[in-house]
Nucleic acid binder design. Structure first.
Lengths: 328, 328
DNA sequence: CAATATATTGTAATCGATTACAAAGTAAAA
DNA sequence: TTTTACTTTGTAATCGATTACAATATATTG
């Protein structure tokens, strides 16, 4: 593969001139510009980004941290990030941490090593201390999951309010025994959604019972199935369930279908509005997050952060999508 | 951020020695090694990959091309690719082409520009001509979708045989009117799966009727819903359906549930065994591809290709997973 | 101890671009 | 035709590492 020297030689000009042509600098005559372009075509030349990046000390790559790509919740956010990045002439590196510190370290090092220019983290399992450390010297934005009272800018929704509204919806439908399927409360979103759940129950003077609150280890479908099975084994069964994610809710629905001898249907509300939530039977009532927008904005914020502008955190609006799982 | 010069100065040695310590070269005394390490810690130094990559003319990045991350089919493959890459000290760049040539060009240029060392393409919509061109100078492996009679090594399954077996299963259950929900036949997998479908029907002297073959534009759930609706409007309705992807099959199931006045249930078989396929109602009978393995092997093949070894294409085994959608 | 072999360290070129500054060329003004 | 102002081009330093080769230090041998 040819390099800039060879082009310069072929075109009979200096490397500086070739570089100017490559970067559309103004001060190059039409005539020399043509000579250079001809040489470029002749030798099938593509400028090396390695050289350019080293000189400019940038990689135009954004790291996107997420625990696992298999959670469909991230799909639309990633779409937003992707489109926004490309519009800004950046590319993204999707980084599955699998919630493993070793993996996380690899990616943090990439940033320190200048292999990436900034980070958007959607990973609730991220090591916040290390991330804060990184954020001192590098642009970092949190997307969806964030740190309360932290210094890293974030874009998210009001999880507490959303949960409150979801549960209130169940109450309005006449449910008094409402269970919660949540994940690990080390995650902020889980704590917030639980808080919303409790606020709604308290407001209507309904009991908050420990055995109606189930914590799963992960967010896979199977965890939802498992959780629902446990709830169905209780002596006093709930009549409705609020799950902190669609994946859990869908698992719960599955477990309910398997249980043929239920006197009354149990209502289920999920969270995220993943595309599959409209394909289940019954279709799932859920909270819709503006995922695409969230991703898009996260990149905007990162770009501003790179320009050393002050970046304000953003809280976006959500929406309750009412489907069959609360009206069968 | 400190650079290698400063470390050399701080430690009172030459840059070469620092580099040797960084790369665990043998010929460094314990004493100087310590001096250097102390300086590294002192100045909080992280070597710049930009410099290293330029010098070594490699980026240790693999591009993974796929049309869209929202298709859950790719999840497990990506997992395999990811794990295998990390084991080989590479990172992957997930590249959604959205089936747009502009996007594709961006990524191809990254390879030409030395920003990535190789490509694994899972994108059926890829421009094969350009990819072949790229493959002349850079390592490329095809994963899942491939080119018949092409020169780029691939890892895949026998789609024709799998489809044949899926349809044969439907025939054995007594179905004689079997529909096909396929995608665009510009994709090889679609042509192969249709061929398998037709082979099974012919073998049992069953009719191949054009109105029972529906082609969707995309692979989203909604396309499956749409396809099934059309099939249900036919005068002579099929009693079973084979869909070339789980997403389409799941959409079809959804459309079937919506239709309450069916005299007999319609059996459905999908393809891919995505994780959702076990969460639908009824659960989906499908063909399971060894997705993780496929991804893992693709990286192995790429590594060999980078070492300029000859790489043989691989056809892996599949499996028919029988669930409720063919026995209700 | 001197001569030689070996282990350790340093010097400087190199990867491929960008860019400040200098030099040469061209156009405009005197 | 000079002189001046402005454009265009070239020279060489630079980004931050690796590494061939040279130089020096240390160990081994006779």
């Amino acid at each position: 593969m040819a390099n800039i020297q060879q082009i310069a030689q072929e075109a009979g000009v200096s490397v500086a001139t070739v570089s100017r042509v490559l970067n559309n600098a103004t001060s190059v005559t039409q005539k020399t510009r043509l000579k250079v372009k001809r040489a470029i075509n002749e030798l099938n030349y593509e400028p090396s980004m390695l050289g350019r990046n080293l000189r400019k000390s940038e990689s135009r790559l954004i790291l996107v941290l997420l625990p696992s790509i298999s959670n469909p919740f991230y799909n639309e956010i990633i779409n937003g990030i992707q489109n926004s990045s490309i519009a800004n002439n950046y590319n993204i590196l999707l980084c599955e941490t699998d919630s493993k510190p070793e993996r996380e370290n690899i990616y943090f090092n990439m940033v320190k090593n200048k292999l990436a220019d900034g980070v958007i983290s959607m990973d609730p399992t991220v090591n916040m201390q290390k991330l804060n450390e990184l954020a001192k010297n590098h642009p970092v934005i949190l997307c969806s999951e964030y740190e309360e009272g932290g210094t890293i800018p974030y874009v998210t929704i009001d999880s507490e309010l959303a949960a409150y509204q979801a549960v209130k919806h169940l109450i309005r439908l006449g449910n008094e025994k409402i269970a919660l399927i949540s994940s690990d409360e080390k995650f902020l979103y889980a704590r917030l959604r639980r808080a919303g759940y409790e606020r709604a129950l308290k407001e209507f003077q309904l009991p908050i019972r420990d055995e109606w609150i189930y914590h799963t280890k992960e967010l896979e479908f199977q965890n939802g199935v498992q959780a629902m099975r446990m709830l169905l084994q209780l002596e006093e069964k709930p009549t409705a369930v609020f799950a902190v994610s669609d994946t859990l809710a869908i698992g719960a629905l599955k477990a309910l279908k398997a249980e043929s001898e239920l006197p009354n249907p149990i209502a289920v509300v999920g969270f995220d509005n993943i595309s599959f939530s409209n394909m289940t039977y019954p279709t799932l009532t859920t909270i819709s997050q503006p995922m695409y927008k969230m991703g898009y904005l996260a990149v905007d914020m990162l770009m501003n952060s790179m320009k050393d502008e002050k970046v304000e955190s953003i809280v976006l609006d959500h929406e309750l999508i009412i489907r069959d799982s609360t009206m069968w």
